[in-house]
Design a protein around this nucleic acid. Structure first.
Lengths: 219, 219
DNA sequence: AGTTCCATGTCGCGG
DNA sequence: CCGCGACGTGGAACT
């Protein structure tokens, strides 16, 4: 990684045009070639940048970075206050613990939390437009498609609508109704769901985890 | 801005849990207090971070960053290879040109660029599922909903479809037809639009800006 | 503060 | 390479 703290102007010509007047900034060039220009504030996002792959050409006080799409980043330097360079070696990378998959697992094991009498038929039930999170049967024996989101938004309603469209063509399953389950559901999503006859259910992650522990304690 | 290059492990506990094993990384602390941990690759996004506002407490080789929501970032340092600190002063900030709002403003002022005889009724016309970019009347007196995107993709067609669904229930407006306007429209978006009876129009930003300047010059 | 939508979104996965 | 969905999305504008 190469780091330079210097006065500079920056011009970006690509998906849009942008310009940074002369000021002191930090310029970071990573081992993969990506370039970032940081101000001393404004969160982690750089003011301007160019991801790899790209080619950096240096001509006196001007650096020009071009990528294969023809997008350009032009940095013109004034006074350079500081510069250093160092090899880091490979990074072992980030380990994450997911939330949405955990939510699906918990609900698959406790479908009655969604609705009284609901029973799981199949998880990740395939359709031509993608897998339905949970396919269930309700107390009355009807088929129910459940879409699980961490946050329920319009996209989730659209997705479930597409699934229902295809599921209802299968005469062995039809009629199929839909339930959108999320920790929070946005008002606009609720509105659209209601309009399409889709039920909205908000679940509390803590309660769900508690219910799961209770269940485990029985064994 | 404070910069440190050092071996470290990082733990994040918040919206999810994540862990970074010991390796050499760059740690950046900006004047607004935000902290970012960068590897020497992988685009401009840091491996881990904490935005401002937050409080950083330093205890020997361990830094703990906590924000008001209770999210935590814990950095434990090994060998420190390098450290520096410098004041940058206020940044004049980025000037942008060619984003969606700019495009919307230009088209609102020159709706005939979209279609001959088109006249603006209202900008950001509200519907229960969000505001329509431009509501217009065409040469024949019919109502037209215009959705403007920088790049026309499938979600833009879906969005406009939802608007039309609701607008067409308003007997004072119906029938309403839709036009998707963008600098570039993807083939799949064109296909879906055609399927739904939505017109696609591609506009050139340069031409549009020229037309706008011409208009201004008249006054 | 809460809500909505834009973004040079970025990123990862599957076809 | 493209399409699609998730993201600790972040950020700004508006209520």
């Amino acid at each position: 990684m190469r780091i330079r703290i210097a006065e500079c102007t920056v011009r970006y010509e690509g998906r849009l045009d942008a310009y940074l007047p002369m000021a002191t900034r930090l310029i970071m060039v990573k081992a993969d070639g990506c370039v970032a220009v940081h101000a001393d504030g404004g969160a982690y996002k750089p003011l301007n940048w160019m991801n790899s792959p790209n080619t950096l050409s240096q001509d006196g006080d001007t650096w020009t970075v071009v990528n294969p799409k023809g997008e350009k980043l032009i940095i013109e330097f004034g006074e350079v206050f500081f510069e250093t360079s160092r090899e880091f070696g490979e990074d072992p990378g980030l380990q994450k613990d997911g939330v949405e998959l955990e939510l699906q697992r918990l609900l698959a094991e406790n479908p009655t939390v969604i609705e009284d009498g609901l029973a799981l038929t199949r998880r990740e039930h395939p359709t031509p437009v993608g897998p339905v999170d949970l396919l269930c049967r309700d107390a009355a024996g009807g088929t129910v498609a459940v879409e699980i989101k961490r946050r329920g938004e319009i996209d989730g309603v659209e997705q479930l609508t597409r699934y229902l469209e295809f599921l209802n063509r299968d005469t062995r399953l039809a009629p199929v109704r839909g339930i959108l389950v999320a920790q929070v559901i946005k008002p606009q999503a609720k509105l659209l769901a209601q309009d399409r006859g889709i039920t909205c259910v908000e679940v509390d992650y803590g309660t769900l985890k508690g219910a799961d522990s209770d269940l485990l304690r029985l064994f």
